[in-house]
Design a protein around this nucleic acid. Structure first.
Length: 839
RNA sequence: GCCGGAGUGGCGGAAUCGGUAGACGCGGGGGACUUAAAAUCCCCGGCCUUCGGGCAUCCGGGUUCGAGUCCCGGCUCCGGCACCA
């Protein structure tokens, strides 16, 4: 064994061994022409979110994949069959934007980037099954994305419809609701506009309740992700109420969570985008002013329009609706604070009990009526602000004197009895808009025929290949629309001339099912096989960034439920346990290439090795928290590997047999101490990894190394059993360290005479060594620590009390005062509670 | 505004069930080895102190023999959503 640890040589050596011996392949995997056999052993599907192949891995990837690697290694050595795959989320805007700049095809850019990122991933030494590698931009993958889209189309879950949608003027494409933050495109930051367009949607709203209900099936997800999804789905209980327009008799429906306040509805509001607006004002004197307001609302960007503190604006239509409960005619106004995409786009305004309606009523001098009386209020108490607290109904005929809760129910019953409405549930979540007017994505497998309408491409004509184009610049429609050979086709149904759909799919569609394809990479007959899929799903441990809480993590849950309903797989939820990691920052701010404040993993690996980086990234702190990068911290982990190496080297230089029994070791206290610490470390590391406390697991290994180092340096391990204890400590050290620093540990293991550490059973602590020889009893007087005494474990309470009271320092602390009580916690402490002065 | 989370040395953090606050690491100081340096190893590092001890886990209360940990009230910071009827 060389005197110095050389990471460059050692890491290259073991990476070559793993590749040559195909150390981390999984079974079963579906392959063409091969019948898969499901082994008996329990399974562990360990998955990290797949990377976008930008060409460079970053510290977030290092953290993500290293955590997964630890779990996968431990599970494998615990006897599980493990699936730990890797792939690339390869469609998307960055490659396309690069293509627009350079003229190079996105596919060329992407495949080159994949080659680069694969090299970097391999250099980290993660135990991945490279046989299952997938890339979402390849036809053998997106063929099945199209196939799944068609299954949804058949079930009415994919549909094309006109809607007011988010348009990003920078990226020249529509966006899903989930991809807009504070009125801005989450990708480029441009202010999003609303446009009325015909687009493809997946009906995720059909699954809103299931997405809430099935949260109970999840074994371990972070609270905040659950909360974010719950808020995003935004369930609220209320009622639908039908109002009828005076004159035309047209029905306008509203959704309200407060049907109890219906007698307080003094006016009626429509969103500017509401389809009834044009009809209402057509040919009326208000028409011009109303259409002008509508046009202005359409131009305003979403962030501005949505500002909470913005003064209320609106315009009167000159029309009225009848309030169904009291027959009153109330004015219809248009107001931009009413949103077309929530509820029905129309609301009954109850200014007495809704803050926004109150502000609107004040701004336009509309009537305000009290229908709820809070504590100490009655029907006449004036309202200087909207009251939304608890109380009893007033000015509300048959609801008067009821509580709010009772009145909600009574009104819902009253409405449904007269066919004027019903209790219903509203959701905030909107259908998932998946069409994109961009090039580098999965083509939507649909043909538009003048005679047959929207026609799905038959399965046997898949994949619809993404065609070559000359210019990737988006101009409001997908660049592939310019390729006539692609667009002009024949209708699969009638054989007549037809045009292909030219929108591509949101890349989040690609990543909504990739974790299923890992069980059948390259299978040409189906996206996956149910038997093999069921042998792996659900993912046992999923790890990734929290930024996907209401994007990928919601979409993947939706897909899984749809596929379950289609009978394609058995599980209702894709990810049984989820861990969301914190960011690695530099100087407290997010690392970003554009700001130039990044630390490249490559450079660290080159200087100190992958193992030091892997250790450091996990040692930084609790992995769920953000953590700040510190160069000298990695140096510290490199030094730790050197210390571990020296301990192993000392052990290898003095070969010894197995660890003697506890009884034999008692004759050699330094050896016994090391043996005990070794077993304690085994117990602690396993427990810490189970609770994702990698940094304390590494600390424990460091403590073991420190103790062994000290023993070697001081020559304390020269006794009868010293060499055996040292050898045992060194072997255990390598065994535990392996899951964090697999290269160095494999080399150490080999030097100690071991073979293939990655298949070596995970160590179990010998219980007899975990029992302590003696325990420190803390002696408190009046709750303050006054002394510490060493005793054998298991000493009786009476003996402990007597011993504590006999201590000189304790007696001094008690002084002249009286002992009122003595609390004894066996093996831990004695607390002497004092009363007053001695009589 | 609503929802979620967090406040512990110079720094990252530990204390898993209410029982020794500060493990492990970084940085700092001292020592050994060396002609010297690097590397390595060892030791010391919360604050105050009349050297008895006193005070210390964001602040103020409370429960308890005992609180970083539990309860109530505040402050600060981070994240998510936000005119959602």
């Amino acid at each position: 064994m060389p005197e110095r640890y050389d990471p460059e040589r050692v890491e290259a050596k073991w990476q070559a061994v793993w590749e040559r011996e195909r150390a981390f392949v999984s079974e079963p995997i579906s392959r063409d022409g091969v019948a898969a056999q499901v082994p008996e052993s329990p399974k562990a599907y360990v998955l990290e979110m797949l990377p976008y192949p930008s060409g460079e891995i970053h510290m977030g990837h290092v953290k993500n994949y290293t955590m997964g690697d630890v779990i996968a290694h431990v599970r494998r050595r615990q006897g599980f069959r493990v699936l730990h795959p890797m792939g690339y989320d390869a469609f998307g805007l960055p490659a396309e934007n690069a293509a627009i700049r350079t003229g190079e095809a996105p596919g060329v850019v992407t495949r080159r980037n994949i080659d680069r990122i694969r090299t970097q991933i391999k250099r980290m030494g993660w135990a991945l099954d490279w046989d299952t590698e997938i890339s979402t931009c390849e036809p053998d993958y997106y063929r099945w994305t199209q196939w799944l889209f068609l299954r949804m189309f058949e079930k009415g879950l994919a549909e094309q419809r006109d809607a007011a949608v988010n348009w990003c003027p920078q990226d020249q494409t529509v966006l899903a609701n989930e991809q807009v933050h504070e009125g801005r495109c989450e990708r480029c930051g441009a202010q999003v506009e609303l446009r009325q367009l015909r687009q493809w949607f997946l009906r995720i709203t059909d699954y809103a309740q299931a997405l809430l209900d099935d949260m109970s099936l999840l074994e371990d997800w972070p609270d905040r992700v659950i909360t974010m999804q719950r808020n995003w789905i935004g369930r609220s209980e209320g009622a639908r109420v039908r109002f009828t327009v005076d004159g035309s008799g047209e029905d306008l429906w509203v959704f309200t969570t407060r049907p109890d306040t219906l007698f307080g509805a003094t006016f009626f509001l429509l969103a500017p985008e509401h389809p009834a607006v044009g009809r209402l004002v057509e040919g009326r004197p208000e028409c011009e002013e109303v259409m002008d307001y509508v046009a202005r609302a359409a131009r305003a960007d979403m962030a501005e329009r949505g500002a909470v503190d913005k003064p209320k604006t609106g315009v009167f239509t000159g029309r009225y609706v009848t309030n169904p409960v009291n027959g009153e005619a109330i004015a219809i106004w248009i107001a931009d604070y009413v949103l077309m995409d929530y509820g029905t786009g129309a609301i009954m305004a109850v200014p007495g009990h809704d803050e926004r309606d109150f502000a609107f009523a004040r701004a336009f001098s509309l009537p305000i009526v009290r229908v709820i009386a809070g504590d100490g209020e009655d029907a006449q108490t004036p309202l200087d602000e909207a009251y939304s607290g608890p109380g009893t109904l007033v000015n509300s005929q048959f609801l008067d004197t009821m509580t709010v809760a009772d009145a909600k129910k009574a009104m819902a019953d009253w409405l449904s009895g007269r066919d004027l409405g019903e209790a219903t549930i509203g959701y905030r979540i909107r259908d998932w808009l998946i069409s994109r007017q961009r090039y580098w994505g999965c083509p939507i497998p649909i043909v538009h025929c003048a005679d047959c309408g929207v026609v799905p491409v038959p399965d046997d004509q898949l994949p619809v290949l993404l065609p070559e184009v000359d210019d990737y610049t988006p101009r409001g429609k997908s660049p592939i629309a310019a390729n006539r050979a692609f667009v002009e086709t024949t209708c699969p149904r009638c054989g007549g001339p037809a045009k292909r759909e030219t929108d591509t799919m949101d890349t989040f569609v690609d990543s909504s099912w990739y974790f299923l394809r890992y069980t059948a990479p390259g299978l040409s007959s189906a996206p996956f096989e149910r038997e093999v899929l069921d042998a792996w799903m659900p993912v046992d441990q999923y790890i990734g960034g929290v930024e996907h809480a209401v994007l990928h993590l919601l979409y993947a849950r939706f897909f899984t439920k749809v596929l379950n309903d289609l009978g394609l797989l058995s599980t209702r939820e894709p990810f049984n346990r989820l861990f969301t990691q914190g960011m690695i920052t530099l100087g407290g701010t997010k690392m970003s290439k554009s700001k130039g404040n990044t630390v490249a993993p490559d450079a660290i690996v080159e200087r100190l090795g992958a193992d030091a980086l892997r250790l450091y990234i996990l040692f930084l702190g609790p992995p769920a928290d953000d953590a700040d990068w510190n160069d000298s911290g990695v140096d510290g982990q490199r030094r730790f590997l050197d210390r571990a190496w020296r301990v192993v080297r000392a052990a290898a230089a003095a070969p010894a047999g197995p660890l003697p029994s506890l009884a034999e070791l008692r004759a050699d206290p330094p050896a016994l101490e090391l043996a005990r610490r070794t077993e304690q470390t085994i117990a602690k590391v396993a427990g810490d990894i189970d609770r994702f406390s990698f940094h304390t697991a590494i600390s424990a290994i460091q403590e073991l190394v420190n103790l062994a180092t000290k023993g070697v340096a001081e020559g304390a391990l020269g006794g009868a059993h010293g060499p055996a204890a040292l050898a045992h400590a060194a072997r255990t050290l390598a065994s535990l360290l392996f899951v964090f620093a697999p290269h160095a540990a494999s080399e150490c293991w080999e030097a100690l005479g071991g073979d293939r550490l990655w298949v070596e059973p995970w160590p179990a602590a010998a219980p007899e060594f975990l029992e302590r020889e003696h325990v420190t009893i803390v002696v408190q007087v009046g709750g303050k620590v006054r002394d510490r005494i060493e005793v054998a474990p298991g000493m009786s309470e009476a003996d402990l009390e007597a011993l504590a009271l006999s201590q000189e320092r304790v007696r001094a602390a008690i002084g002249e005062r009286q002992v009122a009580r003595v609390i004894v916690v066996p093996d831990r402490l004695v607390n002497i509670v004092l009363g007053g002065a001695k009589a």
